[in-house]
């Protein structure tokens, strides 16, 4: 019996993995919402399902006859799914602005409903192809035990460099950040960091000297921090930090600049149900939708006032300048430099 169950599980997992391979891109998670048999809107996203669940639930309550199939993948895989596999999805939401921009620039996106776009500020959309559904700061998180005294709390990158350099024993192996080589978002953040400030390279060197640990995703970083394996997490998505309740760590928005990521949505050119996708986006961009994202899901809504309240917030420019980051040669050269800084001989 035990063997039988094991065999079944093996067969099932084989079928499942087969299905995943057939999709052509690697998916991390997927779930169906809504009544069984109902027509499903296919949503591809880099966001954890749990974070968008309140919005999806509200959407399904408003549209009881429809369902939604949520597929979660890493940003690179999301890009590959659309650009290479031409996978059939109705809405693509990704935090990797550069990859989303490349999809839109290269003609993989179809125009979004004009009236929904008109309400968005210029910096939160590109053409009528790409629109920001949430904005979130890219933050520094510090475990409760990271600081010897509150006075040590870093306010700028320069402060952070000093803190790390002055306490190598405390922070060795306890600093975490994205691995830009495997994470699209991580690459975007460091490329923007490098574009905005020279202190980034010094920070990279310091982190390299402290044997920084590299992660694929914000949530892993936060989990390790909460588990005590990390003291400092650099370039963590603010929404994930907030979603984890801030238990056992504090969130710091560095005051020299804090990148603000726009989580952008597009409707692929080959969307099976573009009208349903437009309706879903309209809901996401509406005031109740934005409130749900902001309060329920913990993702800050797209809000111009935030930049006036917090002058250190720098929105990442949503324009084809992002394409330069993705250039293979440039990217390779950047990663080489980054590795040279991180990996100390």
């Amino acid at each position: 019996m035990r063997h039988l169950v094991l065999a079944l599980v093996l067969v099932l997992s084989a079928i499942l993995s087969q299905a995943r391979v057939a999709a052509g891109f690697e998916i991390e998670d997927e779930r169906s919402f809504g009544p069984a048999g109902a027509p499903q809107l296919r949503l591809l996203s880099t966001t954890d399902i749990a974070i968008l669940q309140p919005v999806i639930t509200a959407w399904l309550q408003a549209n009881p006859d429809s369902g939604l199939h949520y597929v979660m993948a890493s940003s690179q895989e999301v890009y590959r799914a659309i650009a290479e596999d031409r996978a059939a999805f109705d809405v693509v939401i990704s935090s990797a602005m550069d990859l989303q921009m490349k999809l839109a620039n290269d003609g993989f996106a179809r125009p979004l409903p004009a009236e929904a776009m008109a309400s968005q500020p210029q910096w939160a959309r590109w053409r009528d192809l790409l629109v920001a559904v949430a904005q979130e700061p890219v933050v520094l998180i510090l475990a409760d035990g990271a600081l010897a005294s509150p006075a040590e709390a870093p306010r700028t990158r320069r402060d952070l460099i000093t803190l790390l350099r002055d306490n190598p024993d405390r922070f060795r192996g306890k600093v975490g950040s994205y691995d830009p080589a495997i994470s699209g978002a991580g690459y975007l953040f460091v490329a923007q960091d490098a574009r905005l400030s020279d202190t980034f390279w010094r920070l990279a060197e310091v982190m390299g000297r402290l044997d920084a640990r590299l992660y694929c995703c914000s949530s892993d970083m936060i989990n390790d921090l909460q588990a005590g394996r990390l003291l400092v997490g650099y370039n963590v998505l603010g929404s994930y930090a907030v979603a984890h309740g801030g238990k056992g760590f504090q969130i710091v928005e560095l005051e020299d600049f804090t990148l603000t990521l726009l989580r952008t949505a597009l409707i692929p050119q080959n969307a099976p149900d573009p009208d349903g996708a437009a309706a879903f986006l309209r809901f996401l961009l509406s005031a109740p939708g934005q409130d749900l994202i902001s309060e329920g899901a913990g993702l800050p809504s797209v809000e111009e006032a935030a930049f006036e309240r917090k002058p250190h917030l720098r929105p990442i420019r949503l324009d084809p300048g992002l394409l330069a980051n993705l250039d293979d040669v440039t990217r390779q050269r950047f990663l080489d430099e980054w590795r040279a800084a991180m990996v100390q001989p």
């Binding site: 839109a104 620039n105 003609g107 053409r127 324009d319 084809p320 300048g321 992002l322 040669v329 440039t330």
Partner: peptide, 22 residues
């Protein structure tokens, strides 16, 4: 060969009318 693809230039070229860049 070292090639610099300048993001600033791309931003500038795309600025007027949100042009696509290739």
């Amino acid at each position: 060969v070292v090639i610099d693809v300048p993001p600033g230039t791309f931003s500038m070229l795309a600025a007027m009318g949100e042009e696509r860049i290739f």
